[in-house]
Design a binder for these strands. Structure first.
Lengths: 124, 124
DNA sequence: TTTATTATTGCAACATAATCGCATTAATAA
DNA sequence: TTATTAATGCGATTATGTTGCAATAATAAA
């Protein structure tokens, strides 16, 4: 399925890159200029994830957040880093801090999801 | 509000301790001997969390998992450790591996939630 | 032991996040 | 300019988790 360029996709990607932080679907719908349907936003975000353009973070509020991560290389395998969710300004940002771990024998990792929750610099 | 001992609470706690892994509400409802209402299970689990008897993990499937953690001391401040979610057997277990990180200045952490997802020893 | 207090439970309704089917629209290739 | 099919909007649906309320039952008090 070949991707097509649309105003919706451009607007979402532009917003994510301008914010520099991870955003949830509802935050995107609220803060974006144009009117985009909820399902469409999810579909666009999921396709971005499939293409490795943005990455998905699930916070301990159970919600998905999407980041056009500046720290991450786009096409290279991303190094695993911590994310910080601020409960005050409701944003999630990628930290430079990398996640290091070693696994017991026989365990195979596919995904890493590390969230620190609290108050960020701007809000404390 | 003083806690009371009930068959429901005992059954849930017993199941969690026997499993030794974190379980979601639906897994508990499915695997427990007696018939317990969904809302009740959530209420029991939440009260356990409030009392520090079990701890809550939110995986990257967005669901809450609850563990009567053997590695954690019960009353002491828990050290942050990684959790491993196996997509095959649908369980989450506490790893001994501790989470280490340092934060940028001005950031304050309240919660730590680190999930590794993949295939566990038994399933690989 | 009996009674009173109130924590606990079940049920139904509700809230929110996320997905899906389907018809329509529009981006791109021919 | 036309044909193809990806993208979109809409409504319905699924899933997770919570809440209000009346009924039940665990525990304290008499």
């Amino acid at each position: 399925m070949k991707r097509r360029s649309t105003p919706t996709k451009e607007a979402v990607l532009d917003l994510l890159s301008r914010r520099g932080k991870a955003m949830s679907q509802d935050a995107i719908e609220r803060e974006i200029d144009i009117d985009i349907n909820r399902a469409t936003i999810y579909r666009v975000l999921n396709s971005f994830c499939d293409d490795g353009i943005v990455h998905r973070i699930v916070a301990e509020d159970g919600k998905q957040y999407f980041a056009f991560c500046i720290n991450c290389g786009e096409n290279q395998v991303p190094t695993h880093h911590f994310h910080f969710r601020c409960t005050t300004c409701k944003t999630i940002e990628c930290l430079k801090e990398e996640v290091h771990f070693s696994l017991p024998i026989g365990y195979q990792v596919e995904k890493v999801n590390c969230i620190l929750t609290g108050t960020c610099e701007d809000c404390s």
